[in-house]
Simulated assay, not measured.
Amino acid sequence: MPSPNARPEWAAAIWSGARSALLVQRHREDNTCAGALHTTPGTVAAFRTDAPYLTAPQHWPHHVQRHQSQRPQQGRLDHPHRIGTGRVGAQAIDPASSCLRPLIAEAARQGLRLAFTVRFARTSYLHPSGSRTGSPVIRTYVTQRADHTEERSYGSAQAGGHDAADFARRVDVVGGDVSAAVHQWLVETRRTNPDARILHLEVRTWRPR
């Protein structure tokens, strides 16, 4: 006998509400709205589950009640030691990687550190997974996938990461194309070949402790 609590429509309602709230939230007691549709154009870098990642502070209302955690009162790229993230996938890697540029520019302005994860066809890497030759200074994290692609991360917090300001200059040199800047760094450091194509790119920023 099916459980009376087996109600997929409830789950659908909750998740659709969470997705909708990413775009618009009405704060009646403050007579204002928040959400991605109420930001300055160009400041939305990415979404993750129920949180927008933005490249500029937002003066949205926030009310902390008893037993709630003390969260920051502004939506922003980062708060102390927290990671900000943006990502683009294969279908939009060429035009959409430029949307990561504001995230990197703001990270540079704030003196943050930066790491990135790239996905290539496994044969596009010049060195074996986890090889010290492939990553002589910056620790490499590797995820091998069933579709014969591989993700590798460069610039972990434990290893110190990249200087966001230096990477922002790289992005500016190639006209704002973040994937081109990442690819150029990988070629210069002899981790991939010039013809390799990035299939997925994720950029993470944080404030060093």
Rank of each mutant, 00 (worst) to 15 (best):
P4V: 00
W10C: 10
I14D: 07
I14Y: 06
I14A: 08
W15N: 12
W15G: 12
W15E: 10
D30F: 14
A34K: 04
G35M: 08
L37P: 09
P41S: 01
T43V: 09
V44F: 05
R48L: 15
R48P: 05
T55L: 03
Q65C: 03
Q65W: 04
Q68P: 02
Q70V: 07
R71G: 06
Q73M: 15
Q73I: 08
R82C: 11
G84P: 10
G89I: 02
A90G: 00
A92E: 13
I93C: 03
D94H: 05
A96D: 13
S97P: 11
L100K: 07
G111I: 02
F120Y: 06
A121D: 14
R122A: 15
T123M: 08
T123S: 13
S131Y: 08
R145Y: 06
D147C: 01
E151D: 14
E151C: 06
E151F: 02
S156D: 06
S156V: 00
D163C: 09
D163S: 07
D166F: 03
A168H: 13
R169Y: 07
V173C: 05
G175D: 03
G176D: 03
D177Q: 14
V178L: 12
A180G: 01
V182Q: 08
W185E: 11
W185D: 15
E188T: 09
R190F: 03
A196D: 02
A196R: 01
H200M: 06
V203E: 08
